[in-house]
Amino acid sequence: MTEPILRVENIHKAYGPTEVLRGVSVDVRPGEVVVIIGPSGTGKSTLLRCVNQLTPPDQGRVWLKDVELTDKRTDINKARERIGMVFQDFNLFTHLTALQNVMLGLTKVKRMKPTAARAKAVMELEKVGLADKADLYPAELSGGQKQRAAIARSLAMDPEVMLFDEPTSALDPELIGEVLEVMQDLAAEGMTMLVVSHEMGFAREVADRIIFLENGVIADEGPPEQFFTNPKNPRTREFLWKLTELYGNHGEKGSRRSGRRGR
């Protein structure tokens, strides 16, 4: 078995008196796609933010290969270059075009020359199918296009791991498919991905492992087949049931394209 590329060990995080994460550990191996599901407010976003230290955990450690991100002496900015993050509400820089959004990290962080950065940014936009939208501002893009531009912005940094925090939750149903497709291609190329998502079609087809996070701990964990058909924890079945009610039949092939999903 290969060494994990990302090791998350015993993470604790409290906001005031409420402990949001109560000892969460996850190992992700190179090329693995791990999908995290769980009720709203259970600490999924917090967990991802603890990985790249946007939210430093109170306790526990995170390693990217042999670099400990929770170590105060680590240059966290250097480490974050190696970890892409995609947000639920895109967070594109509104004053910049799609192309400039992708270029900014290249020029400001990787210190590439503008011409080289532009060439790379164009390539990244092509990969997510947005070459013809390069000069549009975020406000001129649809939700799906915004999220694809945000993915391109992260990928431009050549990250070793990608974190996705409910990347399709803010999208209209008919736009979910185009984003999931990009993510699926990325997974096929061998990207290591930690994905918070309730798109069960995606989880079933793409995930190597699914984690059920509840009340700040991992309540269940396993490969999709086992997870859907024979969960270890009865709560898992209950939660999957709720998801089915909310989002439509999770097991059905191609359900992510038809995007049946209510609010």
């Binding site: 250097k78 974050r80 270059e81 993050m85 947000f87 820089f93 962080v109 945000a150």
Partner: peptide, 16 residues
Amino acid sequence: TGQMAAARSLGMTKSV
């Protein structure tokens, strides 16, 4: 706070 989070997640320092 999302703009700052996105910028930092790319590896920008706070001042950049």
